[in-house]
Design a binder for these strands. Structure first.
Lengths: 255, 255
DNA sequence: CCAAAAGTGTTATGCTTACACCCATGC
DNA sequence: GCATGGGTGTAAGCATAACACTTTTGG
């Protein structure tokens, strides 16, 4: 490791000419289980907010990318890996942590049902219990984490409505009814079955896997996402180009 | 000022138990002038990247909110104030600044034509020249600022298509043709005049001011934005509620 | 009277919504 | 055979996209 920007002092520590906030990442990890949208929280063992629940997270390493820090913290604190991850927002009110100035970069993560089944969620060494909470029945949260979570839920809703990302909460193969339940749970409202199916199928992101889900009743067709469609942001344009039949690329910026 | 998280040492400076990245804000300030979309850049006087152009920005104060830091830096470095400001994204690759680890929170800003006319853009003490650049004819940029700017342009385009925010680049009163020119310049494509007018007027965000713009040719009606419409995100829902006639609010998160 | 920008409607097409019944299976 | 969830079509209304000429002013 190369400490070119730091200067360990006699009193052991890192010294800078100007004060610096601490920089952390916080993870909002969503999963879908038993028809519930859940989020992973950790019980704090120490003050401040001892006993309260908090988002997993921690300090960014000296030479570590933010994205890598997010993945590492999730792994270390909850033993979860292999998730979809995107940056959400950066929260930096001066008093959000009573101990010191902390700027936190919040990350938004989705765990698929397959990964959820395979992985054993457990708490890291210095963390308290880790457990999943129903997003609509949360405990009291530490710091400003309730606000962060609310913002993450907004983003998740937006993503579901405008992108193919809902798929990331499901197993590789799933029925349309299962998919609809994800949508209804996240958006928190009932959807019309026929219109939902038509719309999803028309969007072209799904393909039949050929298999059927055997169950208590009539078996259901299984679908998967056509690989190319993942993360394809297909919000339609409000001011389409005159010749918008052939999908045209937007003009690039000279650099 | 209260330094509870810091520990000034004998060698003068701020010492922490663990290393901390520096935290900065960078501003992408857009304005619309002479039918061009422009961005404000500052010429660097010192290495690294001496002579190259860069986004205005600087360090976040020890007890300063990120948003406040963004406003302050814009004021100090370019003498610009009174802009629309929103957080864009946080960039934190370990090597984005060769001197030290810097995590920067980028802010996206829009300067109205009225403010542009009133304010004198000038460089702050320690900064080099400040000037406006056409977004489609940029100089070489310092650091990863080209990437940040590209992301900001994407966001601006999205905002124009889905919200009322284009208005913030214009004077308080403007003609529909002027508004169309903003859209065409930002989106970088031609729009149909009749459809543009119908769509904008139908969206209900404009009202006639009652005044006319006298000019070289036929005078044009002036419009303004109905105050309530500003920042009203009116992207329509992809999965509307069954009873979506009366605009219903989305369910709140328990906190 | 000419140049330049402002202003204006209609049609065809496709998408959205609302809505109710039959089908296949397990027990 | 019945309970349960899987699966399907249509009609009405609405928004979109394409398209060209007239109006008003200044010089």
């Amino acid at each position: 490791m190369n400490h070119h920007s730091t200067m360990p002092t006699a009193l052991q520590g890192y010294t800078y000419e100007y004060p610096r906030p601490a920089v952390t990442v916080d993870m909002i990890l969503f999963a879908f289980q038993n028809d519930r949208l859940t989020v992973l929280l950790i019980r704090r063992t120490h003050d401040p907010f001892a006993g309260k629940w908090a988002l997993p997270g921690g300090f960014v390493g000296e030479h570590e990318d933010l994205y890598d820090a997010a993945r590492r913290e999730l792994q270390e604190e909850t033993n979860v890996s292999n998730v979809y991850l995107e940056q959400l927002y950066t929260f930096g009110q001066p008093d959000r942590d009573p101990r010191m100035r902390v700027v936190t970069v919040a990350y938004f993560a989705l765990l698929s049902a397959d990964e959820l089944a395979e992985q054993q969620v457990r708490s890291g060494s210095d963390a308290g219990d880790a457990r999943w909470w129903d997003i609509y029945q949360l405990p009291q949260l530490a710091f400003d984490h309730a606000r962060i979570l609310e913002y993450a839920l907004q983003r998740l809703r937006w993503k579901l409505e405008w992108t193919a990302l809902g798929f990331l909460l499901l197993p590789k193969e799933f029925t349309l009814s299962e998919l609809q339940r994800v949508y209804e749970t996240v958006l928190h409202e009932a959807l019309d079955k026929r219109n939902f199916r038509r719309k999803i199928l028309a969007s072209g992101v799904l393909e039949e896997s050929g298999n059927m889900r055997a169950g208590d009743h009539r078996p259901a067709k299984l679908y998967r996402f056509s690989a190319q469609a993942i993360e394809l942001e297909q919000a339609r344009r409000r001011f389409p180009k005159p010749d918008s039949h052939k999908r045209s690329s937007s003009p690039r910026l000279r650099t």
